[in-house]
């Protein structure tokens, strides 16, 4: 039972000890409360949505409109997608997005496969020292990225990986593992042990039990974890900035940062279009998966 389903009285304005009311009459006070409520909701939605709408409208305006009319003015032509073309072609946004995808999806696949298997080994298998290993992974969540950046830069330089996509994939995989292993271990803990024992009695090897029972049972969780990691990797700046200073593998975030450096304050439209492309992709994802994203991101943080 949650606080939202039973709602006796209105704590925010209730008189002490008011009994449960089944039906509410429309009193002036209640009407006032509805107005106030609408105002608060409206305010919250406005401060969240308005900057994004301004961004979208800005991306449709020409340079002339930008310089000669106030920045809140609506675009003259709502179907002016020229800025997008400039951003995509001249600004190389298309290539940056491809680079991001090249770095993100292999890393995600590795994180999921390795993380789920490790979670299984740490929670379902029985062996000495598994608590210690879990703690070791946990410690990785605390370490700031800056602490591993320089040695990795040296190592990639000496192994001639600098300038390829590998530094990104390897680093993202390693930094994504601690949280993934920790979350997967938690999910496997919730699966009743008897299921695995029954499978063992039926003659399934441990590999079979992982593939046919363990993995399918946490499939949902795997998707959530992958989603959380997707946002971390896709939105990352620090690692991408460090390892793509040489070569042609700038990710979308690095590209966007350079983009404004390149066009600067002069080219408003294309800059806005480039930001907008970055935002809209995430927006579409969020439109479909918002509940899962919210659950995943908050679950990933409560580890204190």
């Amino acid at each position: 039972m949650t606080a939202t389903t039973t709602a006796p009285g209105r704590p925010a304005s209730a008189k002490p000890g008011r009994p449960l009311r089944i039906r509410r009459r429309m009193t002036p006070r209640r009407a006032g409360s509805i107005v106030l409520k609408t105002l608060v909701i409206g305010f919250l939605l406005a401060i969240t949505v308005l900057p994004l709408i301004w961004l979208l409208l800005g991306s449709l305006k020409t340079q002339n409109e930008w310089l000669n009319s106030p920045s809140w003015a609506l675009p003259e032509n709502f179907l002016n997608f020229e800025n997008y073309q400039v951003a995509w072609v001249d600004g190389d946004i298309g290539r940056y997005i491809l680079n991001s995808a090249l770095a993100t999806f292999p890393s995600l696949a590795l994180i999921v496969v390795l993380g789920v298997a490790a979670g299984f080994a740490l929670e379902v298998l029985v062996w000495r020292g598994r608590g210690g290993v879990l703690l070791l992974f946990l410690a990785g969540i605390m370490v700031p990225g800056q602490m591993i950046l320089l040695p990795l830069f040296s190592a990639y330089f000496q192994t001639h990986l600098t300038g390829t996509i590998w530094p990104l994939i390897l680093t993202y995989t390693a930094t994504g593992l601690p949280l993934t292993v920790f979350m997967m271990a938690t999910y496997f803990r919730a699966v009743p042990r008897e299921i695995f024992e029954a499978a063992a009695i039926d003659g399934a090897s441990i590999y079979r039990s992982f593939l046919s029972i363990g993995f399918p049972m946490v499939r949902n969780a795997v998707f959530t974890v992958a989603l959380v990691q997707f946002f971390f990797i896709w939105n990352d700046l620090l690692i991408a900035l460090t390892f793509t200073s040489v070569g042609d593998f700038q990710t979308i975030q690095v590209g966007l940062l350079n983009f404004t450096g390149q066009f600067g304050q002069v080219q408003y439209g294309p800059t806005f279009a480039a930001i907008c492309i970055n935002v809209v992709g995430i927006l579409v994802l969020y439109l479909f998966l918002n509940q899962r994203v919210m659950r995943g991101l908050t679950a990933g943080s409560v580890k204190g």
Partner: peptide
Amino acid sequence: FFPIVLPTVA
């Protein structure tokens, strides 16, 4: 909740 998933750079 939405802004937290947006790229910080953007």
